[in-house]
Design a protein around this nucleic acid. Structure first.
Length: 375
DNA sequence: TCTGGGGTCCTAGGACCC
DNA sequence: TCTGGGGTCCTAGGACCC
């Protein structure tokens, strides 16, 4: 989906179309309706405090404002940009609608988050890729009023890259033989799985483009990245990717975390920290119960004022899902951390998830096997 | 002016088991 | 007297993605 969150906001506030608009920050910046019926919107320059840009319109991106950028930095770059708080419930609803519209064209869908999917269009009745892409875009637009960009290629790796070549609203069809001309000139970091760290290390080897990565000596890559990652780099640089479509995956973990408005002192702000901690555990318990899950492992995450992050976790003899048990386990984790600095973030995580219905009683280790006595 | 919140996957050491 | 070779689970951290 193109600039998904921002585009959903523009459906609600069409008067902001064509303007730089930023979605993000921390609540408190809701538009308000004036007596004459017109709306008053906050501007980025009004913003103060923590938070990052969640999504920006293409007009805001033209001013250098991108996702994950700190809000205060964004405000310096685009002080006049309009500022809207994120409304996740609305985005989830539009997400559901666009996926449903696509499913009517092709049922097999791999969910890649709130605004992205993969489809397997192999052997689809509509054999013309461009026409099929246009049909998918029409279906999404009819259902949501939103535009999307599509890449149609032999695999997920190339489709992801291709979908970004003609944003917004583009359909890009690539074949394997197009890889040298269309893919190799792109920066290596455009490959899904090459992040900032790997891109930086590649640059250190003089490798900037995907083409340079494809031409790199396998021994050089192996020396710097290890065998597994090196051979993956070599394969993806040639556009090769055999990953299948994953149409249903079970959730592995759920978590809740919060960054405080101001850094909190472990002792002086103990009462407030304790209250926040309990609140996170309660929300996590609700999440688990809503999903019908119980968790064998409970963990915590702390971020100090210097941005150092630590985690601790604890596996329990029995899976749990209630707030008190989560709070108890998380509290034990917390005692294993030396709290010598102020905190900026606190989080709680549940993993080792099982279906609540299937998870009665002890783990199966209590059962005796006949073989136990034979070794 | 520091840098959100929700996830997945990988690595690596140690405990423990057979 | 230098002590194998498998395996799983637990824990911590980090890269990466949306």
């Amino acid at each position: 989906m193109d600039a998904f969150f921002a585009s959903v906001e523009l459906l609600r506030y069409p008067q902001l179309r064509g303007q730089p608009v930023v979605v993000g920050g921390r609540h408190r910046w809701h538009p308000r309706q004036l007596e004459d019926g017109s709306w008053h919107f906050a501007r980025l320059r009004d913003y103060s405090g923590r938070g990052v840009v969640t999504t920006s319109t293409y007009e805001a991106r033209a001013l250098g404002v991108f996702s994950a950028m700190g809000m205060m930095k964004a405000a310096r770059l685009a002080p006049d940009a309009y500022l809207l708080p994120a409304r996740f419930d609305a985005y989830r609803e539009y997400s559901r609608r666009f996926k449903e519209a696509v499913a009517a064209v092709e049922a097999r869908i791999e969910d890649r988050g709130i605004d992205e999917i993969y489809l397997d269009l192999t052997g689809h009745a509509q054999a013309d890729s461009e026409a099929l892409g246009a049909r998918l875009q029409d279906a999404v637009r009819d259902a949501t009023g939103l535009s999307c960009s599509i890449g149609i290629t032999p695999n997920k790796l190339l489709s992801k890259i291709a979908s970004e070549l003609r944003k917004p609203g583009g359909v890009t069809v690539l074949r394997m033989e197009d890889v040298p001309a269309r893919i190799w000139p792109l920066p290596a970091a455009r490959i899904n799985g090459i992040g900032p760290k790997a891109a930086e290390r590649l640059r250190g080897l003089g490798i900037h483009s995907i083409g340079e990565l494809a031409a790199a000596a396998p021994e050089l890559l192996q020396e710097h990245f290890g065998r597994g990652y090196a051979s993956w780099l070599h394969e993806v640089a040639h556009g090769r990717d055999e990953r299948p479509l994953v149409t249903h995956a079970q959730v592995k973990s759920v978590s809740r975390e919060t960054t405080f408005e101001r850094d909190l002192h472990p002792r002086r702000d103990r009462a407030e920290l304790s209250r926040l901690f309990t609140g996170l555990c309660e929300r996590l318990a609700e999440d688990l119960q809503r999903k019908g899950c119980v968790a064998r492992t409970i963990g915590i995450k702390l971020r100090f004022d210097d941005f150092r992050t630590v985690t601790r976790d604890l596996s329990l003899p029995r899976a749990v899902a209630d707030a008190a048990a989560i709070r108890g386990a998380a509290g034990q984790c917390l005692r294993r951390v030396e709290l010598e600095r102020r905190l900026r973030l606190l989080g709680v995580r549940a993993s080792g998830l099982q279906e609540a219905a299937a998870a009665t009683g002890e783990a199966p280790s209590a059962q005796l096997s006949l073989l136990d006595n034979l070794d």
